[in-house]
Design a protein around this nucleic acid. Structure first.
Ligand SMILES: [Mn+2]
Ligand SMILES: [Mn+2]
Ligand SMILES: [Zn+2]
Ligand SMILES: [Zn+2]
Lengths: 135, 135
DNA sequence: AATATAAATGAAAACCTTTCTCATTTACAG
DNA sequence: CTGTAAATGAGAAAGGTTTTCATTTATATT
């Protein structure tokens, strides 16, 4: 019952919001661009405008329902937020995305920010390479 | 004699290329956007088109003379390549950029790539926060 | 030094992703 | 059921970057 998730987030329960959430929950690709979501909606018979998809994804991000990856130079990619922070490995050939968590790196980042007098608000780490399947 | 640097890189020695290189070498700001370089050229009396600035910066990147940072959501930023890899801290208020090197993080990244079967080609790490001056 | 030719440039148009505008539709509180 | 604020769709606009193509320039050759 994702209507509850929406209401909890202070968002009115509208068809576009319910459908976008459904797509994100049902898809095989955990990481989707706005365009991907838009196309998936069309395929599932929902004619929801791309502008609305962007709006809804941004609202979901603000509400903590999804998180946004900003990949090198390209378009943003969204994923359902599951509460566990992680970073990403990207295959430069097939665009496969894998996830990882590394506490050592997380700690070092905090230490570096402290050392440099920064109040760290966020970080972004991407490892680019050629995946097993592509090499 | 930056003409030599250009020739070594297989690039013809043209006025735009020489001037862009000069700007990058003389500027106080180590990190400059294409627009910044373009404006600095204008201020120094050189009427070089923005498209040329983009082209030249990309060629310099390919030649290993500069490197490009892809900052979250914004425009690209370029810096003269000095052979020493480093990552960046960015102030979300004043856009100040600081640099750091952390061997522990570098090593962990390699280990993670290996673990996941990736042949690592690159990585990008940005720490966002509020700098000393802005907090 | 003059010439030929491939490469580089400038200006403007095109591109691509994302955001905005605004008229219309919708959710939902009363 | 009604009124009202919020959400939507379509298209325009934004903002950074790349492309196109006619013109200019660097440099190898005479
Ligand atoms: Mn992820
Ligand atoms: Mn730097
Ligand atoms: Zn791959
Ligand atoms: Zn600052």
């Amino acid at each position: 019952m994702e209507s509850q998730d929406l209401r909890k987030a202070g968002l009115k329960v509208t068809l576009p919001r319910v459908k976008v959430l459904e797509i994100l929950e049902k898809t095989k690709q955990r990481h989707m661009s706005a365009e991907d979501v838009y196309k998936a909606l069309l395929e599932s018979g929902e004619e929801i405008g791309l502008a609305t998809v962007y709006r809804v994804l941004t609202q979901f991000e603000d509400a903590g329902l999804v998180s946004r990856l900003s990949i090198d130079g390209g378009h943003a990619v969204f994923e359902l937020e599951d509460g566990s922070h992680h970073d990403h490995l990207l295959c430069v050939k097939c665009n496969r995305i894998e996830e990882f968590v590394d506490e050592v790196i997380e700690q070092r980042q905090k230490a570096i920010a402290l050392e440099k007098g920064f109040d760290m608000t966020d970080h972004s780490l991407y490892i680019y390479g050629i995946c097993r399947h592509c090499q």
